[in-house]
Amino acid sequence: MTHEKTPFRRSFTPFRGLYDPCPPLLKKTYVVPPNLFIGFQPPDFPQFSAIDALKTGTLWTPFYDYYDNPYKK
């Protein structure tokens, strides 16, 4: 599976004090996983093929959320 733009991220900018020693990260991101938005799973949910289900870690496409280090350049 490839790394697509995910709708399951949020970010905020932490307050910056005058004497913070590290260069600012600018954006601090966090995950809001798909299970927050789906509620009780409805019938006939779209599925991956068996091999893609194994590769992604879920049978159900709406639960899939690829994760990678958000601070990686």
Partner: peptide
Amino acid sequence: QAVDFVLFE
């Protein structure tokens, strides 16, 4: 592993 994974899910 793929077929059994579908069973687990």
